[in-house]
Design a protein around this nucleic acid. Sequence first.
DNA 1: TTCCCTGCAAAGCCTTTGCATGATT
DNA 2: AATCATGCAAAGGCTTTGCAGGGAA
Lengths: 144, 144
Amino acid sequence: MHIDPIDIVKICKECGLRLTGQRRVIVELLQQASDHPDALELHRRATKVDPRIALSTIYRTLSLLEEKGVLERHVFGSGPARFERADAEHHDHLIDVESGQVVEFRSDEIERLQQQIAREHGFEIISHRLEIYVRPLQRRKRKS
Amino acid sequence: MHIDPIDIVKICKECGLRLTGQRRVIVELLQQASDHPDALELHRRATKVDPRIALSTIYRTLSLLEEKGVLERHVFGSGPARFERADAEHHDHLIDVESGQVVEFRSDEIERLQQQIAREHGFEIISHRLEIYVRPLQRRKRKS
DNA sequence: TTCCCTGCAAAGCCTTTGCATGATT
DNA sequence: AATCATGCAAAGGCTTTGCAGGGAA
């Protein structure tokens, strides 16, 4: 499965936004990220490239890119918002509460069931989120 | 479907907690609530019964009752935490983004699929949340 | 040159916490 | 009487915002 890179040049051109160094850096970092970093983590990574970049710029850029549909914002548990590239194909998340690791999955069947449930209640779906909080499976039971 | 009332007397007795007027009031309000109020809203309602009750007491009591398994905490979208009685049977939520109304539903099939997905990834489920953000269905298309 | 964008600091929202007072056991 | 719970106010985390200076078009 190939994912097109985020074309920040094109996005800025189309939206009449300015192509700043900060935006380039943030997009590049999100491009590379295989995890789901939050604003602070992104700021840590960004300052390694450009030490002058401000946390507020991170927040502003993330909101902007989310608004343009380039990024998705997730809030797991009661933690800070975490971001990832908007995928062409929607997916949901398994969150390992012990390690904090996030695993993506997709179930067409669950998607279908949701559509059905919404329709039965007289609604149409705008968006949804499904988060499954998990821990690694124990093969054998043992004494605690 | 009948739901047993929250027995705050019993809960306090069992947990070695004190049965205060504030706790009675908060539990009583949650008992009656058919919506999913947040702490501030609960405080508004509580002060009508006892004007001296503090917001921090609301928060403390809500956390306490959540911890005891009496209440469930939900965070919809980016809003404040909202609370409801813990039901014997788990359910998920449809959130009408236009009215803010919350509709509960349950799908055994979705529950089953989640179990299966978690297992396939080598995890066991601790908890999960499924929120479907919706708007009322339009019967006919019309010009905007 | 124009205006958008940034950095900085301050404020905002929701929630938690420290501490002295007050209530329940 | 001994604790535990409360009220009040302050602080805490995350995020947004106001504003003046800086940079892209």
